[in-house]
Design a protein around this nucleic acid. Structure first.
Lengths: 171, 171
DNA sequence: AATGAAATTTAAACCAT
DNA sequence: ATGGTTTAAATTTCATT
């Protein structure tokens, strides 16, 4: 599902609006954009169906008992990167999986409750995915920026949390 | 900002449900959880007001005209990592900035419209931040998973509607 | 804090263009 | 793909415990 060459201006405005408030009513948005609500709904559904947009709740992991975040660089044997991505994506401990060029073939963000949990993921789970040759972990000490909206001005940061994040905000 | 003392079981179920489908109706969720819709609403509002939860739209950047995504590993001179993070966070081309331990002191996700844009960011902008010693770029070839729902593997009896984006994958 | 119930707004399905 | 119409559903507000 390769996406979508062309999103028009209205699509982008809908995306931008929902990036700011994912529960905004389509009627309300339609009024602002001067388009009927049914059109907004049609577009929004299509965007979601095509995987371009998703509306989700984002919880501050630190507020719900997840204290460890790490980025893991993975090297894979030739030709397996995509399968490795799929396997890593299926793990509920991963929140971000991308295939890359460079020293690593895959980068994964892993979130865990504690050291034991993280160790298990790193050692047993990721290590046992076929095609994985090696891993290198980068523990996240502080989150400085977490922007979910691309191309939109600003979104309030993920809350506040005492411990780590400096100031998670969009620019 | 301080700790979130207590999220009870119901709070966590609400968070979990919204992580799966941010637009799910509170009535529908209330039915499933055996709680009145008004209670769900009350809780959800509180969670949002306290910054524990936010419902947002997330777009696949590659689908909305930002064709280049890269993760950049940055090494910094001792003691400057936090300042470097701040400087990188201020760039609108960055969408994710974290301070890490390991080979890199800082990891940044950079999003750009084209090669020229990316080159400018890499060479001129990041390169000129005081404290930056070196950078190593990982270009994102494919986005396999973009999930902002942490820690909700499966709560029994919590079913998303058929159409809901279960484990959102974008590519 | 949590619930219930009414009035209002919104969404989903359908259909015509 | 759009815009309108209708019906069912959801949200908001306010009252109640």
């Amino acid at each position: 599902m390769d996406a979508t060459p062309g999103l028009d201006d209205l699509d982008l405005k809908i995306v931008a609006a929902l990036q700011i408030d994912g529960r905004r009513s389509f009627s309300n948005l339609g009024e602002e954009l001067g388009v009927p609500a049914s059109s907004i709904r049609y577009r929004a559904k299509r965007l979601q169906d095509e995987g371009i947009l998703q509306v989700v709740g984002i919880a501050n992991p630190l507020a719900i008992g997840f204290d460890l975040l790490a980025i893991v660089g993975v090297r894979t044997s030739p030709g397996t990167a995509r399968d490795v991505c799929a396997a890593l994506s299926a793990m509920h401990e991963s929140s971000y999986v991308v295939m890359t060029s460079g020293r690593f073939d895959v980068l994964v963000e892993v979130i865990a409750r504690d050291i034991a949990d993280m160790t298990d993921v790193l050692q047993n789970k990721i290590g046992s995915v076929p095609g994985v040759l090696s891993t290198e972990s980068f523990f996240v000490l502080e989150v400085a920026k977490l922007a979910y909206g691309w191309g939109v001005p600003a979104i309030e940061g993920l809350a506040a949390d005492s411990s780590a994040p400096g100031t998670p905000t969009a620019d």
